[in-house]
Design a protein around this nucleic acid. Structure first.
Ligand code: MN
Ligand code: MN
Ligand code: ZN
Ligand code: ZN
Lengths: 123, 123
DNA sequence: CTATTATTGCAACAAAGTCGCATTAAATGA
DNA sequence: TCATTTAATGCGACTTTGTTGCAATAATAG
């Protein structure tokens, strides 16, 4: 199943390239009013499958996506933290790598970590 | 607003004491068919507020709860990992503490981390 | 035992996300 | 360039998780 290049797909990607925070469906929808709701969901999911975007669930129980940096073909390798500010709701990727140990006999496919609190701008 | 001891509240707590994995609303509901759906949600939320249970969002986008061990009055201090098996869906608390650094000027209130993959039983 | 009010049950609601299906439009290659 | 194939889109209906208003019930304090 080969992926095709479409206008909406490219528009979504552009938004991620411009922004340096993680984005929810809602945020993207608001910048691309003309693109169908379900289409945006599908684009995000495809990018995620393809290792273009990685995903974190926010405190608000929404999915936030951000560009991947060193991911290859569906295998996400994000051992970094995320921070969501409870005031401005912004979700950001923190570059500090996290290290942790994996239990014997466990296979890890993905990882996500979220801190919540108040960011320096809102403090 | 003082908390009262009720039958359903105690039943929910018993389930958590017996189980050693994190539990979703669905799992508790199935063991307490007689208790109203919304009531279980409210009990879980109250326990969470009170620092009795802590919460992790699973890969399936459901909330999983587990007993807290060293939490006092609404201030959760869980710096440990969780693992969700994509096969059996089980969410477990891993006892390995995680250490990480917090950016300058950020106030952290809560933290949650989830690995997904295949557990040793399902491998 | 009585008064107060937290908790429950019920039903209605809200929000996030998914899915089936007909239509549109990329990609391929003749 | 044009026809063919099928991925992607738009639309609507739907599911799932969780919340909320309100009247009824029941735990607690005096
Ligand atoms: Mn990230
Ligand atoms: Mn835990
Ligand atoms: Zn902020
Ligand atoms: Zn398993």
């Amino acid at each position: 199943m080969k992926r095709r290049n479409t206008k909406s797909k490219e528009q979504v990607l552009q938004i991620f390239r411009q922004e340096n925070t993680a984005l929810s469906h809602e945020m993207i929808q608001s910048k691309l009013e003309s693109v169908e709701r379900a289409t945006i969901y599908r684009i995000l999911n495809r990018f995620h499958e393809d290792g273009v975007l990685h995903k974190v669930t926010g405190e608000d129980n929404k999915q936030y996506f951000a560009l991947c940096k060193n991911c290859e073909n569906g295998q996400h390798k994000h051992h970094h933290l995320h921070f969501q500010c409870l005031t401005c709701k912004t979700v950001e990727c923190l570059e500090n790598e996290i290290t942790f140990s994996i239990p014997q006999g466990y296979q890890v496919q993905d990882f996500q970590a979220l801190m919540t609190g108040v960011c320096s701008r809102c403090a």
